[in-house]
Design a protein around this nucleic acid. Structure first.
Ligand code: FES
Ligand code: FES
Lengths: 141, 141
DNA sequence: TTTAAATCATACTAAATTAGTAGGAATTGA
DNA sequence: TCAATTCCTACTAATTTAGTATGATTTAAA
């Protein structure tokens, strides 16, 4: 049960952006160096962040990305979902072959996974980007 | 961000065992049919459950498995860890090449993932097997 | 005593997902 | 003009997951 690099890198990159938000647009090559993430991979990630209106781009030389909102307006959940990192513990499907829902009704663990989904999503809703950049403070809930 | 089938099936199978705990040992082929899980796959899973003292086996014809403890003494976390389903959001590693910890100190998102790990593990600690078998009641936290 | 039903154990393999790379086109400040 | 940058899609390699396969061992019951 792990996060994919896409979700992880997206949050790292956004936190990086937040840290340098007063220095004009930040280029992906800068982020790539600081966070040790491959540049073309970052490009893919930022395409999605942009399409979800979390960042805006400045094209051309000396260009880069800036946050669309202030760090205290951006929830981790926004970032996670922007890059299609889904929290998906439930496994029920319509078609009988795959998924645990073979006999029309819900399986014995359905409610458990449903609650777990909510539990995790609540966490991502509660934490803001701002919470990450206040120099390494302990996240207070 | 998903659970693997190993963790999912382990919990389903344990809940099944708990449901039928008064009928002598339950065979894996019964569980296989009821929960729609491949028999040899279940065997692998139960090997681990047994090695972690969550179930005990009765060999030979008419054999099967029984719970080692009562359902209210078994936490979901026990089951999850027995089958090596790890909650592992952190990605820091010692070797410089892999993992996000390239510059000796912790990355900007380390605390976030650490808190998330705890958040999820708390959930698994709180819920008991018993909570699943009380006929489909809503889990109350 | 034979047989069938069951666990026990390990090795292998196919499918799916993840984590990137590759190869360019478009834009723009210097 | 040119270098630095974003933009965009397709492809591929690596890893992980989700099983199969194979066979041994045990034991209740016929
Ligand atoms: S998780 Fe929904 S039916 Fe099993
Ligand atoms: S998660 Fe630990 S250093 Fe990044």
């Amino acid at each position: 049960m792990k996060l994919t690099t896409k979700g992880r890198y997206a949050v790292m990159a956004m936190a990086d952006l937040a840290s340098f938000k007063d220095q004009g647009p930040v280029s992906l090559s800068d982020i790539s160096l600081r966070q040790n993430i491959s540049l073309p991979y970052l490009e893919q990630i930022f395409l999605k962040l942009k399409n979800n209106n979390l960042v805006k781009s400045v094209r051309g030389a000396k260009g880069g990305y800036k946050l669309e909102l202030s760090p205290d307006e951006i929830k981790i959940s926004n970032i996670i979902s922007a890059v299609d990192e889904e929290v998906k513990m439930l496994n029920c499907k319509k078609d009988s072959k795959k998924g645990c829902n073979n006999k029309s009704s819900k399986c014995i663990t359905h409610n458990l996974w449903d609650q777990l989904d909510q539990h995790i999503n609540n966490f991502f809703e509660k934490v803001k980007l701002q919470d990450l950049v206040k120099k390494k403070q302990i996240l207070n809930k």
